[in-house]
Design a protein around this nucleic acid. Structure first.
Lengths: 240, 240
DNA sequence: GCAAAAGTGTTCATTGTACACCCATGC
DNA sequence: GCATGGGTGTACAATGAACACTTTTGC
């Protein structure tokens, strides 16, 4: 049972990642389904090696799932309730997957390690959804991009983690001007506006938005993008 | 050697606190000097009991030093470099305090526990400096409020922790409107302005400041405050 | 030409900044 | 009265919001 293998990790500390992407005019989040019977959905998580910076650990976990080495991420909150344990979740998982040797599995030293109280450091990442080369980690069965408002039921406190990540993203998008990381390298102003409108959940006046974004002075205007549509070709932009 | 006593704490995780106060028109930070030879100054820190929420742990640590039960605090950052260890600091401390039995002390199991790599969760607190009833924790020799720009040399990465706390405070003061926690329950507008001017490190036009703060709609105006000064008595305010 | 969407400019409202002015207080 | 600092109002500037207008593109 690989999931219980404790390598040279720090005990009782984990990293939970919320990976945001943007597609079909919607903010999406990447949610793996883990490779056990019972429809368990969990945010991408992992542990920290003894000799590893937590930031490096987060990048490692993110690369494992997305294949992306360069990834924009922000540490947003630590979750540290005393009752934050995998106990219930694991017992349900084991009962559905190891019917014959339920008690055996629980004697595995990894079980105690894994079901202990854990403090989790939350990171959110913003990725260009087209660049993600989905890779299944050892415990994943599959994964999928879900509309932010329509995710499957997540295990443990992961719904709260997701909620807090979204809250942090909303707060950061102005001050850190980081929404561009959700887009391809080159993008149109319309695409930027779609991202903002989705995150803010409201419509923005196009012409004012363009002026506001350009006044941030973080984009450079490139060639025009001829789409074949019967309208004026928009400019492409790139982050400076 | 109490400092090495490992009770029922979570391993490799600590909490570091930056306690801000305001006095003499200056932003101050409370820094204990620890009770060993060698002038070691360390931010108030502590560990998390197995059955304790991290937020409760932070409050406990803050109460230990300040005597305050109700305290405003914000989790601001996690410090998690792989080389984040007390090794060097402890070796220096031991060499200055246990000259005769240096090697003995190092064999204490607590030594290994304490000098291991630690991940630290940073909290900053805002307190009414007059209300703080200084209490020395087990390892403190004394402590003092220092001007934010004129602290003694701190151990380990505590200078960075302090710097990041200050950065977080600057970012939060607008959005969270939390500067009032640095003042007594009742305060004048002038005092609020002093806080802002100190944190922003620049002067603000008095009359505009007053209007801006009142427009936040978080204060209620109380009676006038007769100071004995030969000028108009200012109003007192209180947080709603 | 026409529809569609991009880009620019103009107007008006809101907010922010600078400062004048008046007010209460103690000597 | 007078100096001192508090409180309010006013004028101008900067920013933001709403919208008209022009431009480009494919049919």
């Amino acid at each position: 049972m690989n999931i219980l293998e404790n390598k040279n990790f720090i005990d009782q500390v984990s990293i939970d990642c919320v990976i945001f992407g943007f597609d079909e005019n919607q903010l999406k989040v990447l949610i793996p389904k883990i490779n056990f019977k019972g429809d368990f959905y969990a945010l991408p998580s992992g542990f920290i090696y003894q000799e590893e910076d937590i930031e490096i650990a987060a990048r490692r976990i993110l690369e494992e799932r997305t294949g992306l080495k360069e990834i924009y991420m922000e540490q947003f909150k630590v979750f540290g309730k005393a009752n934050r344990k995998r106990q219930e979740f694991m017992d349900e998982l084991i009962s559905k997957n190891y019917i014959d040797n339920f008690e055996e599995v629980k004697k595995n030293p990894g079980y105690a390690w894994f079901t202990n109280r854990f403090i989790s450091i939350g990171y959110y990442a913003l990725v260009n959804i087209k660049k993600v080369k989905p890779r299944l980690s050892a415990i994943d069965h599959s994964f999928q991009w879900y509309d932010i408002r329509n995710t499957p039921e997540l295990i443990m406190d992961h719904p709260e983690v997701l909620k807090e990540a979204l809250k942090a993203l909303k707060e950061d998008i102005e001050s850190k001007a980081n929404a561009f990381h959700l887009l391809p390298e080159k993008f149109t102003m319309r695409e930027v506006q779609d991202v903002y409108e989705t995150i803010y959940e409201k419509e923005i006046v196009r012409t004012n938005f363009q002026k506001k974004i350009l006044s941030l002075d973080v984009l450079e205007r490139l060639e025009k993008k001829f789409t074949g549509a019967k309208n004026k070709a928009p400019y492409l932009y790139r982050m400076k």
